[in-house]
Nucleic acid binder design. Structure first.
Length: 568
RNA sequence: CGGAGCGUGGCGCAGUUUGGUAGCGCACCUGUUUUGGGAACAGGGGGUCGAAGGUUCAAAUCCUUUCGCUCCGACCA
């Protein structure tokens, strides 16, 4: 493509609307433009990258045996009511009516549509297994779209759905997708870690997320520094911590702690290690009050709690509602002497000896509190967010925490949807069975943003070759006849040999061309100017490394392809 | 939805405190000279200040309402 004809509006300055590097660079490099928050137009350069990623993903999917199809974006409400998610997904869906007043939504995901499709076709165990996928625009009315295409309200997703006769089959399908995903991400030139994940609104049993490690990532991931354990912190579990020494239980006492509400305040006021305080959190789980206890130096993991309680919604008890459940103001509640409220505690609370807790009396705390002796916990379970340095649950290592961008997510759904939507087959005995399902997503547009987060410098994007919009950019410096002739020939020949090449033939000064080439991140730059032509050479420069190579004007195209071949 | 910030030519911003009828840089158009890391000079076009209402002789500026954008949180694949 000749750049004099390319619709490539690059920006010299960073738009005020963009905060993170990938968002800024996608706008500056002329890859996309904003329509409104979370909704974007892909310009020719950006679309090329999207298509590259799609093709790589498509190939990995096809090789795994999955088959591509295309489902509608418009879904009927009946389907979603059938699965029970019309209400559950609720505000996340864009809903509307047709002229007859019938309800629809724009598809945020496609379990319902695919299940409705497949249940009509699959009758026998002989029809299984099957894995169907599509690459399509998804629509989700996100509460807070942000970071450009990282979390958009409209985004491109590859979603696949597997159908098996049993759980062994599902395990095989799941494994095949896991492998295909790793392959697709690697082929895109990305460094991705697979981590154990929570299943969230999709439901199901097992789940992995594929994470691109990046500072701007919205997810936090816990890694073991010595074994392969890795999990989203929503899911991560820490190993047993050593309990230091044994201490005699002392007699419980009430102490005056005026105005000391937070753990920090109380522990400082009483001169006690925060780990020995018991943090009491009053929550409503779908409206039911529950008191949750965690050690003062821990944070409650609400995902774990919500999963355990099978609650859709967890909200803190509002300050003004405290008197409904407690005899003190916020900051002084605790488990001792509390009645009529379910009490759950993190496992670490069990080990606290002579701890501190709220006295259920405004401006008072209790010291030398001992679980079991002074109060009863209905259930102990793992409820805390793991921290940097926590022991690994699988080995003797320690956990590290890093930020990541979720570019893929795979789920073992089991029969969640086949049961609610009655998707069944007949086994060898003629007995009706529910189809066992899995679902698998890759955020194509998010992956592009993640690739930029992982591959950029102060000058701009540095595309991995596999997803670069073009592999080579030829800069024609000046309009010297010889320069025009040489660049034109190079361009024609490279293109003829299948190398995707940009020719910067614009009437711009050299600085503009250099800067644009760096900004849009083409892996290999070829510079041709009158000056170098005098020595019968041209210059090649590798975007990622900055390596410069002088090339004699002889078999130049061979040499360029040679250099290109060794670029990642 | 709660908190914070911001909406002024295409982009980045000043002007708002203390009302007096809009300015700078970049970009754009024409011309000349330039041409290896975002050129220089000269000339030129383009905004009614997010929107609506109000106060005032007079509103970008003050008041009210509203819409949008960004960030933090809640929430969310």
């Amino acid at each position: 493509m000749k750049m004099s004809n390319l619709y490539l509006p690059t920006l010299k300055e960073t738009p005020a609307e963009a905060e993170v590097p990938s968002h800024q660079l996608m706008l500056r490099a002329g890859m996309m433009r904003t329509l409104t928050a979370g909704i974007y137009t892909y310009l020719p350069l950006g679309w090329r990258v999207i298509r590259k990623v799609e093709d790589i993903v498509r190939q990995a999917m096809n090789e795994s045996g999955a088959q591509e199809l295309l489902m509608p974006i418009i879904h009927t409400a009946e389907l979603w009511k059938e699965s029970g998610r019309w209400e559950k997904f609720g505000p996340l869906m864009i809903k509307f009516q047709d002229r007859k007043g019938r309800d629809y939504c724009l598809g945020p995901t496609h379990e319902e549509v695919i299940t409705a499709l497949v249940r009509g076709e699959i009758r026998s165990y002989k029809d299984l297994p099957v894995n169907l996928y599509q690459i399509q625009t998804k629509v989700r009315d996100e509460i807070r779209p942000r970071f450009g295409v990282m979390r958009g309200r409209e985004f491109i997703m590859k979603d696949a759905y597997s159908f098996d006769r049993d759980y062994e089959g599902l395990d095989r399908s799941y494994r095949a997708m896991y492998d295909a995903y790793m392959k697709a991400f690697t082929n895109c030139g990305l460094e991705v870690r697979a981590v154990e994940a929570d299943t969230g609104a999709m439901g199901g049993s097992e789940s992995h997320e594929f994470m691109v490690l990046a500072e701007v990532g919205e997810d936090r991931i816990a890694f073991c520094d010595s074994c392969s354990y890795a999990a989203n912190v929503e899911k991560a579990v820490a190993g047993e911590r050593e309990v230091s020494g044994s201490e005699e239980m002392k007699e419980m006492e009430e102490v005056h702690t005026p105005g000391q509400k937070t753990i920090e305040e109380v522990s400082e006021f009483l001169g006690v290690d925060p780990a020995k305080t018991i943090k009491s959190l009053a929550l409503l789980a779908d409206g039911e009050p529950v008191l949750v206890l965690v050690a003062g130096d821990d944070q409650l993991n609400e995902v774990k709690l919500a999963n355990y309680l099978a609650a859709n919604e967890l909200t803190p008890v509002a300050d003004e509602d405290f008197e409904k459940y407690f005899s003190s103001t916020p900051g002084f509640i605790g488990p001792v002497g509390l009645e009529g409220i379910r009490v759950l505690a993190d496992l670490r609370v069990k080990d606290i000896v002579n701890g501190v807790a709220g006295a259920n009396k405004t401006d008072y705390h209790l010291i030398n509190v001992n679980p079991g002796r002074d109060f009863i916990v209905d259930e102990y379970l793992d409820l805390r967010i793991v921290k940097e340095g926590d022991p690994c649950p699988k080995c003797d290592g320690k956990l590290e925490i890093k930020s990541g961008i979720e570019v893929g997510h795979i789920f073992k759904l089991g029969t969640k949807y086949s049961e609610s939507m009655e998707a069944t087959y007949l086994d060898e005995n003629g007995k009706e069975q529910f189809i066992v399902m899995g679902c698998y997503g890759i955020g194509i547009s998010r992956l592009v943003a993640a690739a930029i987060e992982q591959n950029h410098d102060e000058k701009g994007i540095i595309w991995p070759k596999a997803i670069a919009p073009y592999q080579v950019i030829i800069l024609a410096l000046g309009d010297d006849e010889e320069v025009v002739k040489v660049t034109e020939e190079l361009y024609q020949e490279l293109t003829a040999r299948g190398v995707e090449t940009l020719l910067d033939d614009r009437k711009e000064r050299p600085g503009v061309k250099f800067n644009d080439a760096d900004l849009i991140g083409i892996p290999l730059r070829i510079t041709v100017g009158a000056r170098s032509l005098k020595n019968n050479t041209i210059e090649a420069r590798v975007r990622r490394t900055g390596e410069e190579i002088q090339l004699e004007l002889e078999n130049t195209v061979d040499k360029i392809i040679e250099i290109l071949d060794r670029i990642e």
